[in-house]
């Protein structure tokens, strides 16, 4: 753990008690995330990648080990509004306009009216939705709705952005486009991003660090620091480095599957 560590997990365990006995959602997870990193969590369903993200957000409580976010417990970090969270579904309120939806966290956190308006305009521009402020969610495509939900997570300037398969429900072309935009946004805002996915190309394309996980019990099997440059055009996916990392991720996923 270094001075610029934002998220630090040591020996983290989470066991759910179910009717079929205990389920080890996370077992002995050690991970440090430094400021400004783009970290992807990849693995098959049940590997605990979403659970880990929810632990960071204070939405689940670990049953063992330590976890700090900005040097605080996850619950303190949640109270300090240290992160923005993007879910798989955009989850916009149908009775609010796009602007109104982005405003929601600002209203809850008590920003002044003038500042709300200024911030809404700024983050909508950041996700290329300027001019859609007065539209209702049903008037936007799925990709645009998800961009609006990212704007909502950015609106209150948290340093950490946690994203749980945000583009999982979108088609590939839209997804490529959003990935490109997300990288640009990350470069501009210098946020620390935790990103859950089950797409290998998506993880390799986006991340500075790829965390490969496997199920039963949910654990980390490999952590890959990406050698790819920060500047990444879409065609970097045809480069040798890209294919090598993707290969290593695939091997890691396969290794975690030997018990099946």
């Amino acid at each position: 753990m270094t001075a610029d560590t934002v998220i630090s997990a040591q020996g983290l365990n989470l066991t759910f008690q179910t009717n079929d006995g205990p389920v080890h959602a996370l077992k002995d997870v050690d991970l440090d995330i430094r400021k400004g990193e783009f970290v992807s969590f990849i693995g098959p369903s049940g590997c605990g990648k979403t659970t880990f993200l929810r632990c960071i957000a204070g939405l689940e409580t670990p049953t063992g080990g330590t976890l700090t976010v900005n040097g605080m417990t996850p619950d303190q970090a949640r109270r300090a509004r240290a992160y923005g969270y993007v879910f798989q579904a955009a989850g916009l309120y149908p009775w609010r306009t796009i602007g109104g939806n982005v405003k929601l966290p600002l209203e809850i956190m008590g920003f002044s009216k003038a500042e709300q308006a200024e911030r809404v305009a700024r983050v909508l521009a950041l996700v290329d939705l300027a001019g859609f402020e007065k539209k209702f969610p049903w008037q936007l495509s799925g990709g645009m709705q998800q961009r609006a939900s990212i704007a909502r997570a950015l609106a209150f300037d948290a340093d950490i952005l946690l994203m749980d398969e945000p583009f999982g429900a979108l088609d590939e072309i839209v997804r490529d486009h959003l990935n490109e935009q997300l990288l640009a946004l990350w470069a501009r805002t210098e946020k620390t991003i935790g990103f859950v996915t089950h797409s290998i190309p998506e993880a390799v394309y986006l991340s500075t660090k790829i965390v490969v996980m496997s199920p039963r019990p949910g654990r980390i099997t490999d952590v890959i620091d990406s050698p790819l440059p920060k500047e990444r055009p879409l065609d970097i996916r045809d480069s040798k480095e890209f294919i090598d990392i993707a290969h290593r991720v695939r091997e890691g996923l396969r290794a975690g599957h030997v018990d099946d």
């Binding site: 939405l59 992160y83 969270y85 879910f87 989850g91 966290p105 209203e107 809850i108």
Partner: peptide, 21 residues
Amino acid sequence: AMQMDLLRTYYASASQGFWKL
């Protein structure tokens, strides 16, 4: 559940959850 979780990430109070959601 996702909508309720979203409000938890904002550390919204029960009354804010009532009026806004």
